[in-house]
Amino acid sequence: MSDFEYLSKISMGQYFATHSIIHRLNPAFKLAAFSLLILATTLCKPWQGLLVLLGATLFMLVISKISLKYALRGLLTPLPFILILAIIQILMMSYQSSLPDWFSWHFFRVNNAGLLSGGILCLRFFVLVLLLTLTSATLSTLEIVHGLDILFKPLNRIGIPSGQAAMVIQIMLRFIPSLALNAEKIAKSQASRGAVWGDPKGSLFQKTRQMLPLLLPLFTVSLQQADALAEAMLSRGYASRNTRTGLKEYSVGWKEIFFILIVLLLCTLSLFWPFK
């Protein structure tokens, strides 16, 4: 019975420390570049643009020394959903189009317009999944925090403290596994006392009431933990007004500049495909 293994249910992608050239880039640049690529993939209309993005993603996977087999396996889980969405898309777009049909039966028609937009949909999802795999494989949670810290810096000017924002995110990430562990412990303990979760009988109120034995202690324990952590942080000299330094210092070199320029070029190219 693995009903209680909450920790394994919150996997956030797998980081691979292969120390490739991509891994060694300044995390702020990586974070910005991957965000741009994801944005471009979502917004890009022409299929040629998506192909460019697909090529770029595959190329980066290769130079990050991440096994393509692993990356492609990540496509398997969402594949059924993608295919269903694609079929709906094909039928919908074919129905609205006046192009000659390849196939028709009652309302169901298939023609080039439908096939094209179904294909684009598939392609878009493929690139997105691969990009997310690439991001989680080359950016550790810690680098995300450092990256955000650097990217938020300009916000200091308008009074938003970037250091504190990054600290909040770091603590949030740090608390996710411990919340899962606490929930697991409490659930097991209450189950030992006869609690049964998710009993389908009863009104919404009763169902909510059933969850109280889990939620109340979880809140109390989390608050205690937050209190203790705040105390530990203060006693280790944390004060919001400090200018904190860090273990790692990130530099900006020609590699970072080159990387972000290439990514910008690819995004522009794919969004505004000039060759018709």
Partner: peptide
């Protein structure tokens, strides 16, 4: 477990000196 701030060991040790 209530005294750990960072997600990795070395970053956590660096928390105090960074402050």
């Amino acid at each position: 477990q209530n005294q750990i701030v960072a997600t990795t060991v070395e970053e956590d040790v660096a928390f105090g000196p960074a402050n």
